[in-house]
């Protein structure tokens, strides 16, 4: 139990202020663009980023905040018509994804796509806010120079026969990663590598939050 609580404890004060700042940013149309500045400093952060406890704490804090917002919206909507359980689930899902994207700090295409999608919904009437959010930096998250030590590849070499099927699979993959539908093969692969880890972290954080909440529920927790 104690470990659970510490898992979801808000991080440092600096991140709290950062969180507030982010929130402000998000409410402006230019949020996708504003992340550009921080994007430049990316690539050195390794792939362990999503696996760190700190990252999970940051995400949990953002998630809880987002969920509170959902709750507020729900209860205000309840006056008129109470949303269906399905809708509420979807609202939580969207909040969780947005929090995840914010935690990614606009470093990756997938996270910017999630945030941009929300902006599109919010300002549907306006023209598309980001004509070319094609931010030429980042995503090269995994630039090969980071891994100076030559890793032995654990994948069979491509041959003429396998290339078409590889390309097909990459296309499918590109549709699963937000914002990667029309990207090039290396970009899709790099984004997918980052996205998987972010999703894993999201699942971990949501799981421990659910456990935390249910342990406070009326029913005693199952042993």
């Amino acid at each position: 139990m104690a470990s659970l609580i510490s898992d979801t404890e808000p991080p440092t004060t600096s991140t709290t202020t950062d969180l507030v700042r982010r929130k402000k940013k998000r409410s402006s149309v230019s949020s996708a663009a504003s992340s550009r500045t921080s994007a430049a400093s990316v690539s050195c952060e390794s792939h362990t980023r999503w696996r760190s406890e700190k990252q999970q704490r940051i995400y949990s804090a953002k998630l809880i905040q987002a969920l509170q917002q959902v709750r507020l919206n729900n209860s205000s909507a309840e006056a008129t018509s109470s949303p269906t359980a399905q809708k509420r689930g979807r609202a939580v899902r969207e909040a969780a994804d947005r929090a995840l994207a914010v935690s990614a700090r606009g470093r990756t295409l997938w996270s910017r796509a999630i945030l941009a999608n929300r902006i599109k919904l919010k300002f549907r009437k306006q023209k598309r806010p980001r004509a070319t959010t094609a931010i030429p930096v980042t995503t090269t998250v995994v630039s090969s120079s980071n891994r100076s030590r030559k890793r032995r590849v654990s994948v069979l070499r491509l041959n003429k026969k396998s290339i078409p099927s590889v390309n097909r699979k990459v296309r499918v993959l590109g549709r699963l990663v937000p914002g990667c539908g029309k990207q090039s093969v290396p970009v899709i692969l790099e984004e997918a590598t980052d996205y998987i880890q972010a999703l894993e972290m999201q699942v971990r954080a949501m799981n421990s939050l659910a456990q935390l909440l249910s342990s406070y529920g009326s029913a005693p927790p199952p042993i």
């Binding site: 969920l67 959902v70 359980a85 509420r88 689930g89 979807r90 609202a91 939580v92 899902r93 969780a96 994804d97 654990s154 994948v155 069979l156 491509l158 396998s162 099927s165 590889v166 699979k169 990459v170 499918v172 993959l173 699963l176 990663v177 997918a192 996205y195 998987i196 999703l199 894993e200 999201q202 699942v203 949501m206 799981n207 939050l209 659910a210 909440l213």
Partner: peptide, 29 residues
């Protein structure tokens, strides 16, 4: 393993994670 296999597994895994997030969202809500 073949690249195709890795990519297939990647797609499966992302779908699985998406489902998990869906389920957890319902539970949290």
């Amino acid at each position: 393993v073949s690249a195709t296999k890795v990519l297939q597994e990647t797609c499966n895994y992302i779908r699985r994670l998406h489902r998990e997030v869906d389920n957890l969202s319902d539970r949290l809500s």
